[in-house]
């Protein structure tokens, strides 16, 4: 079964690279890309499926509603219980660091700058899903 992955990031170039990396790592996935914090908020609040996704990848610098606020929202939403949340960003301010410690994502990654780095990241994310998802029946 395809893994449903929500990537919330305004840089679609990074979303595309991540998709390449996951597919290169033999992860059968369908990626929903959301480029805006407000859209992401609507998606999270109105989601009817439980769980709404198998994995969420979240950037911190987003238009309108930032990643920290979204992370808090996801943590407070019962339908997202057990859904791993990966935060990835190109650099963190000290303020972001403090917030990350409070709303601890499943994993935190600095965005790679080389293709090789993206491929490695794909493998790590596959491992996160393998470790947190219940085994298929």
């Amino acid at each position: 079964m395809k893994k449903r992955i929500i990537v919330i990031d305004d840089n679609t170039a990074d979303t595309f690279l991540l998709e390449q990396a996951l597919k290169g790592g033999a992860v059968d996935c369908a990626i929903v890309g959301i480029v805006d914090g407000e859209q992401a908020q609507n998606y999270i609040c109105r989601s009817e499926e439980t769980p709404p996704a198998d994995l969420i990848v979240l950037d911190l610098n987003l238009p309108r509603i930032d990643g920290i606020q979204l992370l808090r929202l996801i943590r407070e939403c019962p339908s997202f219980d057990g859904v791993p949340v990966i935060v990835w960003t190109s650099s963190t301010s000290p303020k972001d660091q403090a917030a990350l410690e409070e709303f601890h994502p499943t994993r935190f990654f600095v965005k790679p700058s080389s293709l090789e780095g993206f491929m490695e990241l794909g493998t790590k994310i596959r491992d996160v899903m393998g470790a947190t998802l219940p085994a298929p029946r």
Partner: peptide
């Protein structure tokens, strides 16, 4: 970052 990764 994107320039480099996309070139590769």
């Amino acid at each position: 970052r994107n320039i480099r990764a996309y070139t590769e």
